[in-house]
Write a protein that binds this DNA or RNA. Structure first.
Length: 274
DNA sequence: AGAGATACCTGGGAGC
DNA sequence: TGCTCCCAGGTATCTC
């Protein structure tokens, strides 16, 4: 379940493996992901060199020397990994891009909620369209308590779906929303209309520190996340509330509760989070 | 316009 | 053991 930390960990792992490499042939499974994989466009990239790996929100961007950008979204079960060309493809490998050193980049995505898009060189509009609704990056300037407070003005939605809304801030999925709200001491069901200035400060800070800590741990591996070298992350051992309903709160030993908020499992401690 | 539900998809675990 | 059911999650799209 790649959220921002997992995508960032993947990005950092991919850099030494792919930057400077030339693309070779592309294999496409043909199974549709959230959008159809652009098979012909990928074939046309043969011979192009990868110049950089960037991230915007939960999107991973491979920049090419042609000016084209290959964009990946991992959806809920997607993963990109580097493999030798000899290693057999697995079920659910939907895209394989050969590199010029007998390795390949494979997109593995059992649930097929992922996405592969090619942004052609010079088509700034396509890029604009793809990221048009994205809010600020939580680990960059532009994201702050003031920003959150401003976005919340006139709204009454519960704070948890609010911070998971990518027009508010990108990269915060269900796991890190739960953990950030615990760190900030705010109950996930609380309406954004009832959050005070000092609490917005705590929440903005909690989101930053939670995501940063998760990146430092190599992300969270619940069932299937692996970095580019197929290693697991270990931030999940630091979860305070996510997936821990019925267990004691690490702060007060009260019981962690679970409640579904707008269709998403939410975990909190009733006494530590008001 | 905001809020919430729904659709997309598969594997894994629970329960019978 | 083998079946069915439910759940997980990100985002686009819908309905109210």
């Amino acid at each position: 379940m790649p959220e921002l930390p997992e995508v960032e960990v993947l990005r950092r792992g991919l850099i030494p493996a792919v930057v400077g490499r030339r693309l070779g042939a592309a294999f496409v499974s043909g199974k549709p992901l959230r959008r159809q994989v652009p098979q012909q466009a990928l074939a046309d990239l043969c011979g192009r060199r990868i110049t950089a790996v960037e991230r915007r929100a939960k999107y991973l961007l491979l920049l090419l020397d042609s000016g084209d950008t290959l964009v990946f979204h991992l959806g809920m079960s997607g993963n990109l990994g580097i493999f030798t060309t000899e290693s057999p493809r697995r079920r659910h490998d939907h895209l394989e891009l050969l590199l010029d050193n007998r390795t390949c980049l494979r997109l593995h995505d059992p649930r097929r909620f992922g996405m592969v898009v090619l942004l052609p060189a010079g088509d700034g509009e396509a890029r604009q369209r793809l990221f048009a609704t994205c809010g600020p990056e939580p680990l960059e300037d532009g994201f702050s308590a003031t920003w959150l407070r401003t976005k919340a003005e006139g709204r009454r939605v519960a704070v948890k779906p609010f911070i998971m809304n990518s027009t508010v801030v990108v990269g915060v999925g269900n796991i890190y929303a739960n953990e950030s709200l615990f760190a900030a001491g705010i109950r996930p069901t609380r309406s954004v209309a009832r959050i005070r200035a000092a609490e917005w400060e705590r929440l903005a800070e909690a989101i930053r520190t939670t995501l940063t800590a998760a990146i430092a741990c190599g992300g969270s591996t619940i069932s299937d996340f692996r970095n580019a070298g197929q290693q697991k992350g270990y931030f999940q051992i630091n979860f305070n509330v996510y997936g821990r309903s019925g267990e004691p709160c690490p702060q007060c030993s009260g019981k962690i509760e679970k409640e579904v908020i707008t269709g998403r499992a939410s975990f909190f401690c009733r006494s530590c989070q008001q």
